[in-house]
Structure formats: C-alpha cells, structure tokens
C-alpha cells in the first residue's frame, strides 16, 4: 500500500493519518472538510496527509473528512 503520513514531533499519542493512494480518487472531500490536515498533490491531485489532529475540534474535522471520503482511503493508526 502506497501511503503518505506526517507526524509532528511530540505528538506521540496522536494517531497518524494514513492515506491509501491506491484507493484515492482525488475527490478532495478530505481537504474540503479538514484543510489543516489534508492537502492535494499539485502533480497528481491525490490527497496527502498533513499534521495529525491534536485537539477535540481537530479530531471532529478529521473524522468528518474520513466519513466524506467516497472510497474510504483514510485511516488513523496508532504507532507503537
């Protein structure tokens, strides 16, 4: 699975946002719902994860983005 993720130092407890680029169709719903946490590559239009959600408000936005994704390409993973 080709994926991109990003994690800020010091956010050990925050689940990392993972995008499955084999599923992503560039619908842009993640960016529309949570622009602080997702962007789209200018080259191919597919989504790229930015910083993980650290506050409750941010988590709601990320969850909305996940629910809006038409191909379920977004997941959250807790690193060990």
């Amino acid at each position: 699975m080709a994926s991109t993720g990003c994690r800020s130092p010091g956010d050990a407890a925050m689940p990392r946002i993972l995008i499955d680029r084999t599923r992503c169709i560039g619908a842009g719903q993640c960016v529309a719902n949570a622009a602080d946490h997702f962007t789209q590559s200018a080259e191919d239009g597919l989504s790229v994860a930015l910083a993980p959600a650290t506050t409750a408000v941010q988590r709601v936005a990320v969850e909305r983005a996940m629910a809006a994704c038409p191909v379920q390409a977004i997941s959250l993973i807790d690193d060990p």
Partner: peptide, 9 residues
C-alpha cells in the same frame, strides 16, 4: 488520475 490535478480544492 490524469485529470485529478485539474480539479483539486
């Protein structure tokens, strides 16, 4: 995917 870049947010 050849055209997704044209319609990004």
């Amino acid at each position: 995917r050849m055209f997704t870049r044209e319609f990004t947010f």
